[in-house]
Simulated scan of single mutants.
Amino acid sequence: MILEAVILNVKPGLESDFETTFKKASKLISSMDGYLSHELHKCIEVQSKYLLLVRWETLESHTVGFRNSAEYQEWKKLLHHFYEPFPTVEHFEEIEI
């Protein structure tokens, strides 16, 4: 399992619109092969900051499957205009402890 982690800095004043639109966009990502789950968290200290966590079966499920899909093109249209600056996406593997 791969965990995708993204800090989303939404343009101030657009938080409510972003949250509403994200609910619609969630249907796109959750329909993808290799998708396991996702969560969106709103920062307590910074009103326009969010944390997106997405669990994928493999790295390629995200970087190839989703990113090369028609669903991703729609995801971009719905969400990318909300971000300033554009987010950095990172992927993590779980360490057995």
Rank of each mutant, 00 (worst) to 15 (best):
L3S: 08
L3N: 05
E4N: 06
A5Y: 13
A5K: 12
I7F: 07
N9M: 09
V10N: 00
V10E: 00
K11W: 04
K11H: 07
K11V: 10
P12C: 04
G13A: 05
G13E: 03
L14T: 03
E15H: 04
S16R: 10
S16G: 07
D17V: 11
F18K: 02
E19C: 07
T21D: 01
T21I: 07
T21C: 08
T21V: 12
F22A: 02
F22R: 02
K23I: 14
K24Q: 13
A25Q: 01
S26H: 09
K27W: 09
K27Y: 11
L28A: 07
I29D: 01
M32T: 08
M32W: 01
M32C: 12
M32D: 05
D33T: 05
D33V: 10
Y35E: 06
Y35D: 02
L36T: 08
S37W: 13
S37M: 11
H38Q: 15
H41M: 15
H41W: 13
K42C: 07
K42A: 04
C43I: 03
I44K: 12
E45F: 15
V46R: 12
V46M: 09
S48T: 10
S48I: 00
Y50T: 00
Y50W: 06
L51G: 06
L52V: 06
L52D: 06
L53A: 03
L53R: 07
R55F: 08
L59E: 15
L59D: 04
H62R: 04
V64F: 10
F66D: 00
R67P: 00
N68I: 09
N68Y: 12
S69H: 07
A70V: 10
Y72F: 13
Y72C: 07
Q73F: 11
E74G: 02
E74C: 07
W75P: 00
K77Y: 09
K77T: 13
L78K: 02
L79F: 07
H80F: 14
H81V: 09
F82M: 04
F82Q: 01
Y83D: 07
E84A: 12
P85A: 02
P85V: 04
P87Q: 05
P87Y: 02
P87E: 07
P87W: 04
V89R: 05
H91V: 05
H91G: 03
F92E: 05
F92D: 05
E93H: 13
E93D: 09
E94Q: 14
I95Q: 10
I97C: 08
